[in-house]
């Protein structure tokens, strides 16, 4: 076996010496090193740390994403109205500027931390980690993270959340899932918001939106909601509660198995 004639190259290890392979030497004698790591591994590492943190405190973290103005804060206000007697809720708000959204949430009697990103178009796991220092996780069951209004960039950054919820308001195009497949594919629940406006609009068909989602192999729930008329709120709230209970069950199971190991 030698490095000269290629007799040590087999079907099983050929990929290692080909372009990008672990032991490849290029013709001009540079050393090629195989890496195969996510380009955002720093962010992913922090996100995993955030997720552990949430789980240690028994908190279900939900990342809300949408374009600006599709009603994320309004939905949160109404969700808090309905759930705050039964669950302890906290919110992290992401915006380029202003404390306005966090203030709206605090007015509902719920702790909210505002992250102002300046020019950054998305939240990342490090920003969330900073915000967690000011978040009373011990006292929470549910943590909502309202991402910066943007249908592109937030989709690429794991924050450590357990679930993604993507909003599409009826004042937008019903073909948006086809235009922004990355963010809609990532959703665990798609909410079609401002449904009370549907009778006034003749160019948004919820079925079209549903079909565009199905073309993305989307298999999760789609709910028409209005934070104004409360249409669909029960379905959304029931889903949230089911997710919360499922996480609780998983955690108590996890704690049990640790005890068995000890």
């Amino acid at each position: 076996m030698c490095d000269t004639c290629g007799c040590n190259v087999t079907h099983g290890n050929r990929h290692l010496i080909e372009e990008g392979g672990k032991h490849a030497h290029t013709s001009d004698d540079h050393v090629a090193i195989e890496v195969l790591e996510n380009l955002l591994s720093e962010n992913d590492h922090q996100a995993a740390h955030n997720r552990e943190h949430f789980e240690r405190h028994g908190v279900l973290a939900i990342n809300l994403m949408s374009s600006p103005g599709s009603g994320k804060t309004r939905l949160l206000e109404r969700t808090i109205d309905h759930l705050k007697e039964r669950y302890k809720i906290g919110v992290i708000e992401g915006d380029l500027e202003t404390e306005n959204d966090a203030q709206r949430i605090r007015d509902k009697g719920v702790p909210a931390v505002q992250i102002t990103t300046g020019t950054a178009c998305h939240l990342d796991a490090h920003m969330i980690h900073q915000a967690l220092h000011q978040t009373p996780l011990d006292e929470l069951d549910l943590l909502f993270i309202e991402n910066v209004g943007n249908l592109v960039c937030p989709a690429s950054f794991d924050l450590g959340q357990h679930l993604n919820v993507t909003l599409l308001s009826v004042t937008e195009g019903d073909d948006k899932p086809a235009k922004y497949p990355v963010i809609f594919r990532a959703a665990d629940h798609v909410l079609i918001t401002k449904s009370d406006l549907l009778p006034l609009l003749d160019d948004f068909d919820p079925d079209n939106a549903g079909q565009a989602l199905q073309q993305l192999a989307y298999k999760n729930p789609i709910t028409l909601v209005s934070a104004k008329s409360d249409q669909g709120m029960d379905e959304w709230l029931n889903w949230l509660e089911a997710q919360q209970q499922q996480q609780n069950r998983q955690q108590s199971k996890g704690a049990g198995s640790i005890q068995t190991c000890l």
């Binding site: 990008g20 195969l36 380009l39 192999a217 989307y218 298999k219």
Partner: peptide, 17 residues
């Protein structure tokens, strides 16, 4: 539509020279 993505969402650092 019940499919699973097998490639197309990569964001990988493959190698460095």
């Amino acid at each position: 539509y019940r499919t699973r993505l097998i490639s197309g969402d990569e964001l990988l650092l493959a190698s460095v020279e």
